[in-house]
């Protein structure tokens, strides 16, 4: 079976129902849709095990922060790849910043271990069931999650940093 965005989406929706698979679009040719926390692991397992799809490679995953979307500020993006069919797929899960919990994917993909640690480090998303959810790139003692949009980089309008001290 030749995989196209239409037939893959049709297959997924018939398996998981329209209420769980929403907002499908393809911004750059890669089909992107939104699902929820309850479905995501089952969905990725299904894509992995289905003999027709064979989407068995987790290319990458990352967090995204949208502070203006009230109630769904945080987003997890999973990008999968079927090496057999050369077909890529992107799945998003939105969650409120007050409840940053996601199920872990480590039992399906060993590679998600560090990616989840990185996302926890950057965005504070907690992965339930993760074998070792600690910070990976930043120091353990850090008290915030630096990629969240409320932490700006050095503010260019600061006045307490006098340029001559920094040779600029």
């Amino acid at each position: 079976m030749e995989l196209t965005n239409e037939n893959v989406l049709g297959k997924i929706i018939s398996e998981f129902g329209e209420e769980n698979i929403r907002d499908a679009y393809s911004p750059d040719g890669i089909m992107t849709f939104t699902t929820n926390r309850e479905t995501i692991i089952q969905l990725i397992k299904y894509l992995h095990d289905d003999e027709e799809l064979q989407i068995r490679f987790l290319t990458t995953m990352c967090g995204i922060h949208f502070p203006d979307q009230k109630g769904s500020e945080l987003c997890m993006m999973y990008q999968l790849h079927s090496l057999r069919h050369n077909y890529r797929l992107r799945i998003k899960v939105f969650m409120p910043a007050s409840d940053p919990i996601m199920p872990t994917l480590t039992q399906v993909y060993a590679t998600s271990n560090w990616m989840e640690r990185e996302t926890f480090d950057f965005y504070g998303i907690k992965f339930t069931g993760h074998p070792n959810l600690t910070r990976i790139l930043n120091i353990e003692e850090m008290e915030y999650h630096p990629m969240l949009k409320q932490y700006p980089l050095e503010d260019q309008t600061r006045e307490d940093k006098i340029d001559t001290y920094f040779g600029r």
């Binding site: 290319t59 990458t60 990352c62 560090w114």
Partner: peptide, 28 residues
């Protein structure tokens, strides 16, 4: 596979730029 995942919100800078770094992924 060195991947770049870029979200632009129509501004002068990327809204989010994620690097898929092969070393980070296979070193585990």
């Amino acid at each position: 596979e060195l991947g770049f995942y870029l979200i632009s919100d129509g501004g002068r800078t990327p809204y989010r730029l994620h690097f898929r770094r092969p070393c980070f992924i296979y070193y585990q």
